[in-house]
Design a protein around this nucleic acid. Sequence first.
DNA 1: GCCCCATATGAGACCGGTCTCACAAGATGG
DNA 2: CCATCTTGTGAGACCGGTCTCATATGGGGC
Lengths: 340, 340
Amino acid sequence: MKPKAVTLKDVAAAANVSRATAARALNGYGYVGGDAAERVRTVARELGYRGNRIAQALRQGELPLIGFVPGDILNPFFSQIAHDLDMELRGSRHNLLIAASQEDPEQERQVIDSLRALALRGLIIAPATSDPNPQLAAMLEEGYPLVLIDRVPEGLDCDQITVDNREGARNAVDYLIRSGHRRIALIHDGSRIGTARERLAGYSEALESRGIAADPALIAESPSTVSHAIDATIRLFHRQDPPTALFTVDSLMTQGAMLAFRSLGLSMPHDVSLVGFDDFDMATFSDPQITVVSQPIKKIGPLAVEMIMARIQGSRAPARHVQFPTQLTVRGSVSRPRSA
Amino acid sequence: MKPKAVTLKDVAAAANVSRATAARALNGYGYVGGDAAERVRTVARELGYRGNRIAQALRQGELPLIGFVPGDILNPFFSQIAHDLDMELRGSRHNLLIAASQEDPEQERQVIDSLRALALRGLIIAPATSDPNPQLAAMLEEGYPLVLIDRVPEGLDCDQITVDNREGARNAVDYLIRSGHRRIALIHDGSRIGTARERLAGYSEALESRGIAADPALIAESPSTVSHAIDATIRLFHRQDPPTALFTVDSLMTQGAMLAFRSLGLSMPHDVSLVGFDDFDMATFSDPQITVVSQPIKKIGPLAVEMIMARIQGSRAPARHVQFPTQLTVRGSVSRPRSA
DNA sequence: GCCCCATATGAGACCGGTCTCACAAGATGG
DNA sequence: CCATCTTGTGAGACCGGTCTCATATGGGGC
């Protein structure tokens, strides 16, 4: 009941050699006699010797671990990325430590601190806010391997992978306009999360470039949850002069809008058109299927691993800023407005 | 560019005390003079001293890490659990290492091996198969803290959390029978995964207890992916004498069935009834919403943490086998068969 | 036969902490 | 005033590896 793991010393003793020789035999470096090596390997197998990575790490400085700090693993966007990181990292014999920030800056700070104490080789983070972040700045300064995904704090020149939120939103809204809509509503969380801000900006740009005055009454702010989004949608469409189309800035809100339309008895695309940012499974399960701005999620994980590995291997290259374009995935939730 | 983390030695030197005293001051044990302690703490703060958990772990044997080996994090079932584990573990100042087995026994073996080398404090595993598992048996034998969830290898008396798959399936099928169905199809993956087998058993029992002969032609086997399930469903309903109801053993298959029905032009519940095992978001987004057997997913994570922590704290109590009951969540996807 | 070098091996430093133990003071007390 | 106890502190062992360096041995070249 006291497992007492087999150590190198045990193996060395059993094979009648010194720890140094045993280590050489097992790790295959330096000079080792053929039969000594043989003996050590046999004994190690028999004893069930299993190296202690902690000791190795202590000597060499780091554990083969990469940390990932998503906003929330429950979000399919992040669980896809977590999955890809896990797969990709396995190829480099690293393991993945996941600790969600719950989209809370303070929790994020603590989580990062606790991960750093573990002497991970690097961290992949989706920062909870786009406010300047001294903690990350300090790590970057120290040369700590760091890759930011999805969102980026202001003024931090760090390896990062984002998508072109502004353009994606602009395209989506422009598509609605080209379909004949003029009264296009928007739901966003007024959050610190930069992505939402950029999507809002894209919305405004699209309207402006087509000479449509933005109506502040059509812009709703709501926390990013399905139920809040339902409320926000209902409020928007309960007006005497309701919008003919809606653009939602994330998939949770899109789901909320779908449910709200159902309860309002509005049918898509006949009564109302909908475009959401971010693709999600349900978008293809509803009837009609939902037109969305899709992001190349599957490219993010592998690229993040590539970036962090480069840093771990000591690359001092200037920070890479990769911004993926989005793509408008046209499905069935948009048509010309009835009245138009 | 060579961060050269601040070590205890640096702090001790700067505070003009020995490492021993510095350690005592920082960790608050043993005797330390008031002003020495003060000095050490101040210096530590100024230098940005951050303990090295690896060194601590080497001395004390383990890192404050728990490993989690799910089948696949993309599966919402597992991402919910991962999320709960992460949250729950934070309370005990532990971090979560996630490495998916991809439902592959060989990969599982390797993953567990690589996690063990990291000297984690314990492992929470959803075994990929229910075949006897010597690796896990050996770990158990050694007294390694281990908690199994969702599935359990044969002949392993280990802390475990499962749900009553057989009863859940029996209830679901019985519900269909009580709704007047006689020709009830089943799609399962013929997998080694025990849960699927138990659900199949529940299906058979329900039929038998109502005196309905099971028709092998109504039992389809398909890998557990949406697209395979679509094919399987189509094959089942292309028969000259199609079933009037379908029971699917997991949420991916349920989704596949929904899509297949749509493409076949069958409308639920009018043309066909559907009950799925495992609740999922989309089940409430479709029209009609899907009747499912739901599992108390949110209870699993917290309980798993409780169990593993007890083992880590040295509990030698007999293995706990917790089996949660399931609940039939009746929604709108079942009605009396047309013909009946 | 002598020197040099390649090969094989062990001793021991080291990584950064924790912790035991010995020891030096000052306080207590009889 | 000496013995004893309480404090405060440092030296150094230790965790389990890695790795440098010194040493031992044997073969080849001259």
